[in-house]
């Protein structure tokens, strides 16, 4: 009897754990770029499966995208993981997000164009559906 209760108990505990962890895990998976600055986006959101993208493109070094700069020089061996691009790349004029948009476009398109892989045209990233 006690074995059975213990078994049932651990089963319930496991299931609870799974239920608790699953949504948390799903939340961590980034599937699109959604910078908080674009409150009323003009274009459809950009699908970007963060981990799958970086694995497929062979990008192990986080600082390729999450970079840091000092005196206008890119710092090797340090990164800005956990920060949004807009924390550093917002234009002085808060109503005009063109500088931030440009940072995204230069980084994403720049690499795709030079490697001749990945989307480069507006509608390939900002897909309407």
């Amino acid at each position: 009897m006690p074995e059975k209760i213990r078994f049932m108990g651990s089963l319930i505990l496991l299931m609870l754990l799974a239920v608790l962890l699953c949504p948390a895990h799903a939340q961590e998976d980034i599937v699109r770029v959604a910078d908080r600055v674009f409150e009323a986006p003009m274009r459809p959101p950009v699908a970007f499966h963060h981990d799958a993208h970086n694995e497929k493109a062979g990008l192990d070094d986080c600082s390729i995208c999450h970079h840091t700069y000092e005196n206008g020089k890119k710092q090797e061996g340090s990164d800005s993981v956990g920060m949004e691009c807009s924390e550093c790349h917002f234009s002085k004029d808060r109503n005009n997000a063109v500088d931030l948009i440009n940072a995204y476009h230069l980084q994403c398109n720049g690499c795709h164009a030079s490697r001749k892989a990945g989307p480069v045209m507006c509608g390939e990233c900002h897909r309407r559906r």
Binding site: M42, V98, I101, N102, H105, L106, N109, C122
Partner: peptide
């Protein structure tokens, strides 16, 4: 808007644009 974003990406220039 799209043309201005392309000019911005190439020459870092931008100006007022029409709503889409």
């Amino acid at each position: 808007c799209a043309h201005i974003l392309l000019v911005k990406a190439s020459w870092n220039l931008s100006w007022w644009f029409l709503p889409d």
